[in-house]
Design a protein around this nucleic acid. Structure first.
Lengths: 191, 191
DNA sequence: CAGACCCGGTAGACAGTGTCTACTAGCCGA
DNA sequence: TCGGCTAGTAGACACTGTCTACCGGGTCTG
């Protein structure tokens, strides 16, 4: 239950997040959010110029959540452990916050307002580059940014394919950990 | 311009593909497709029980297209070359058939009717496993299926991140080839 | 040849959506 | 006290996907 005394803007986002995790991205209509916030369907317009901008604000919560889970891993003393934890956090987020994950990476959202993703990406990517740099110390090209980019893509791809069940019919298991480990070993060089 | 003498079912798909590549996934409404096919908005229902099923049929065209581009690579005599070409084909498809690519991997579509993706996946994955197996001959674990899975995820992730511009702001280039090569080298072992 | 039948498509209704505009209740400062 | 502004209401508009009633014309059957 959203607080009654918060500003409407915050309450709309809160209701949206709640609705998203409870009933999936399909139910995130402007009118439904307004309805659940106990307000008329025209009210959100005062704070969000369009439906998409409200969705962006909701997705932003997800970016911050994911970012928060990952930020702390930067200083992990064993960078390889850090990357494993980062990967698990990413995949765990995709699995447990499925609706949010789908929303965060929806094309229509990313096309316009990219600020949310941009910031989150920078943060995530920064941690990734740090850990990769340390994990690959003394190794030759490709340079850490490239490896980090490829690793991130790999991570995201695993999450994506796993989410819609493409992995079960190929790798034949719903445990992504082996895949994650394979990806890490591949990009970092076998331990 | 769609032929006038083909069956309506085929014409709807054809018009849909055309509309998709020309104006993007957002314009693929049931009514608009019917309109462009010169038919009333209730007509599609005779062949497709729902809007989603029509979209699935349109996406199927994409699966077959992509599958066709990749199928021939199975017999590439140098498996590593084959994988590079496969990767390029995949990324090229995502770039040039952007709207179709987005449609093909839309969550709502994949959730229900997975037949299209399932078939396409099996085909793609089969080629991938073949090539990986040959490329990693004599190497130790992980087994080819796992490597192929991780590689596919990596490929798809690169396409995804690249499509919405996340790569430019990290890797600082719009040329995905280095990333692709890094991924291949990583998963196959340096050449 | 006549009539029943079905196939393929039309047309309209319905609930729901996002956007826009006119309006208004209530508060705040002068 | 009064003017103006702020936040929210309410209704219209065009559009969407789905559903149902309807039909025209061809085919098969008796």
């Amino acid at each position: 239950m959203p607080d009654q005394d918060t500003t409407l803007r915050a309450r709309l986002i809160e209701v949206g997040v709640d609705l998203l995790t409870r009933e999936g991205p399909g139910s995130l209509t402007l009118r439904e959010i307004a309805r659940r916030a106990g307000v008329s369907h025209g009210a959100p317009r005062r704070y969000f110029p369009s439906h998409l901008s409200l969705l962006s604000a909701i997705a932003q919560v997800g970016y911050q959540d994911l970012g928060g889970r990952i930020a702390g891993l930067r200083d992990e003393h064993d960078p390889r452990d850090g990357l494993l934890l980062l990967g698990r956090a990413y995949l765990d987020f995709a699995r447990t916050q499925r609706g949010m994950f789908e929303l965060m990476f929806r094309h229509e959202l990313l096309r316009g307002n990219q600020i949310g993703l941009r910031d989150a990406s920078r943060q995530l990517f920064g941690v990734l580059v740090d850990l990769v740099t340390r994990a690959r110390q003394g190794l030759t090209p490709p340079e850490p940014v490239v490896v980090a980019g490829a690793l991130w893509a790999n991570l995201h791809g695993i999450a994506q394919l796993w989410l819609w069940g493409s992995l079960q019919m190929t790798v034949q298991t719903d445990d992504v950990d082996p895949l994650l480990r394979a990806a890490l070993d591949a990009h970092l060089g076998q331990a």
